[in-house]
Design a protein around this nucleic acid. Structure first.
Lengths: 230, 230
DNA sequence: TGACTAAATTATGAATTCAAAATTACGTTG
DNA sequence: CAACGTAATTTTGAATTCATAATTTAGTCA
């Protein structure tokens, strides 16, 4: 009926949802540092909103584990602890493995071409040791596989856990050795995806996550040790 | 210092969290039927709270997928659709499989005894064809395995997805044949858990979830067909 | 009667207000 | 001057208020 009129259904999303996304960005970008207090008043002023929608957003973020609400004491950005990392990565591994398996069943040739393009870009980023680009493209690859799995529930769950692991830039202990190894893992991921070999892709993604877990844990332990000596 | 004084730290949880739990119960209990509108005003009156904390709870439930917020039109209990079931069960399967694997690594002898007791109870419920008890004990078993996995993140994720699949009582198509088969599956689950055979337990739980998925989908399709004929 | 329009009503989204709790500032005393 | 206790201030949690959007009702005209 209104096919040509409905060029775009301007779905003005609710204020609290926009705030959820803004705050997520602030948290994973490190503008709101792990362990720090969420400055409610300041954020209201900054975004030009009242406390009501901001507080709604905080409840949602708390249920996602990005912040912690202390009764009568306010909201705090959660810390990335070793025990949390040891918890989250296995779950993320299982979910990514599933996403690989499902993706192999549904991914189109065009999508594989797209992932390959990203993969090449990532190799360039690696060669020029551009960590920021590397991270960003890396994420896009994982996201592309996730989308190819055609399972929104899976995507949402993965996304939520992934965010929790991205709370701080420094989370990756990208030594030259680890980085090289990660790139090799991605070569395999690319290969198995192109072959639509679900079993092997799942296995590789699981191993990839476990290696990442180890790398992050080691990094955190170095950090802790450093902190102790102050 | 205050070891004997701190008999219980009365952690008065915030109002919105209590409401989240109440609403979850109302939804999975069917008091708020799938597809129906969430009666904001009524619930406020019923719980004796203002709209602010109730609406905070609604945002959280929406992010969990139990309700859907339509801008300017209010909150609606989400429907359990075939496509959602087809999405959620594979994810739940992967998570339960992981929980089985982890549980086998950490579960204590006492816990196994506890699960066995529940298992026996469940068999009794099956023999007397007490579906309500059966369901309830069944859940406790899965929950016990989940707890034995010692991974709160995993438990929370599982719990959230599990709730979404419990929105309606009628979700299980418990024909005599299916029921019998489910009990057999549980026998295997019990056996592998007692043997601490993580690999096989994971495999069995995955298959268990898949069988459940099929059963639920079949039931939903019957329902749809019935609805069409009205 | 049935379709359309306009007014009245209601529900929603978000700002504001208010009471209670926590924190800070301040003054007192040993 | 340090430790404690009290008052002032700020922050938080939740109720209330208010503007706007959606729905319902009433009324008009074909």
């Amino acid at each position: 009926m209104n096919q040509e009129l409905a060029i775009q259904t301007i779905q003005r999303k609710s204020l609290h949802l926009e705030l959820v996304e803004c705050l997520q960005r602030l948290i994973i970008g490190g503008d709101l540092a792990p362990g720090s207090k969420v400055p409610e008043k300041e954020l209201c002023a900054q975004f030009g909103v009242s406390r009501t929608p901001l507080r709604e957003a905080l409840k949602v973020l708390a249920s996602d584990g990005l912040i912690k609400l202390e009764p009568n004491r306010g909201a705090w950005v959660t810390l990335v602890t070793v025990s949390e990392v040891e918890e989250v990565f296995p779950v993320l591994g299982a979910l990514e493995a599933l996403s690989g398996e499902l993706a192999c069943k549904s991914i189109s040739d065009d999508e594989i071409t797209g992932v390959r393009a990203l993969h090449e870009q990532m190799l360039h980023a690696y060669e020029s040791r551009d960590l920021d680009s590397y991270f960003s493209i890396n994420q896009k690859i994982h996201r592309a596989i996730l989308l190819a799995a055609r399972n929104d529930t899976l995507a949402t769950s993965c996304q939520a856990l992934s965010l929790r692991m991205q709370r701080a830039r420094y989370l990756a202990n990208m030594t030259e050795g680890r980085w090289h190894y990660a790139v090799q893992e991605h070569e395999k991921i690319m290969e198995y995806l192109a072959d639509r070999n679900g079993k092997m892709l799942a296995e590789t993604l699981l191993a990839h996550m476990d290696a990442k877990r180890l790398s992050v844990v080691q990094w955190l332990e170095t950090q802790d040790r450093t902190a102790d000596h102050t």
